[in-house]
Nucleic acid binder design. Sequence first.
DNA 1: ATTTATCCGAGCATTTAAGTAGGGTATAGA
DNA 2: TCTATACCCTACTTAAATGCTCGGATAAAT
Lengths: 165, 165
Amino acid sequence: MRLTTKGRYAVTAMLDLALHEGQGPISLADISERQGISLSYLEQLFAKLRRNTLVKSVRGPGGGYQLNHDKQAISVAQVVDAVNESVEATGCARQGDCQSGETCLTHHLWCDLSDQIHSFLHGISLADLVLRKDVKDVANRQDRRHGSQVFLTTADSLLADKAAV
Amino acid sequence: MRLTTKGRYAVTAMLDLALHEGQGPISLADISERQGISLSYLEQLFAKLRRNTLVKSVRGPGGGYQLNHDKQAISVAQVVDAVNESVEATGCARQGDCQSGETCLTHHLWCDLSDQIHSFLHGISLADLVLRKDVKDVANRQDRRHGSQVFLTTADSLLADKAAV
DNA sequence: ATTTATCCGAGCATTTAAGTAGGGTATAGA
DNA sequence: TCTATACCCTACTTAAATGCTCGGATAAAT
């Protein structure tokens, strides 16, 4: 099992798409600038996300990427899985043949751990993240800094202004 | 974050010690044979476990390793930590400076995940594992195969015999 | 036609895991 | 005292993955 910037980048980029939903296709250049991720690396990640039908692309000027499903229907676990970062703690892919064909001493422990992690990440959708206060705060900071027009509710604006002071 | 055979080996080896507690020092050669782990690699892992005072060693013939604390007092999390496999999902070690000094969009998500994993692994002690049926079954199979005398309760013997048929 | 963007593949530096190799040192027992 | 056993330690090797870069191709809007 491993969780590195690869999976974190993927989730961050997908969340960026979710945050700017309704603004048409979002280019990778925008995401790269806002989230501080290398453009070429983003391309590779989005190739996998597209193959897993999590996003759809529009080519040409004004093009970019959009979520292919509803925010609520995309879980963090799906995104992490899509870029090949398995959230699987066993070494035998749950087969139980960890020790030369037989079950190793700690097999079930790692199965339990895998279940924990998977159900945790599966229970969080992009929509859930968009609603979180800490996410909103960071998103507003990023949008202000990179000159994107954001659609804030009055309440959100007041909160953001307060946070900025 | 990463969890590979390194951390799994460490927990498996520590559990082997816990299972054979009261039989004097256990040699790494025994653990190597029972658990199918390279002897030299075990030596490296136990160097770290010893530096973290999780085990104590006895040198010379008849020597080996023993748990340095009570089974109940050693958690899986401690063992994994000892071999430098941090169960930390953030890339900034919780500092919140993930994106060029500022907090990245998904920082809090990975903090939450880290908490989940850590509290799960912290809540499981070696004593807990020793009591599990699946662990007992594997341990009995291993001991029978490698000719070690095991101290079974009558109930355990019956269970093990049944399982062997 | 030119610009903007997604696509696609090759390649590369760095790190880590996992294991090998080959020394040593302490000690129980003959 | 000798010797076998076992811990101890350092250094190397192999393989794989991460996180990039670079160069180019294709599609579409101006």
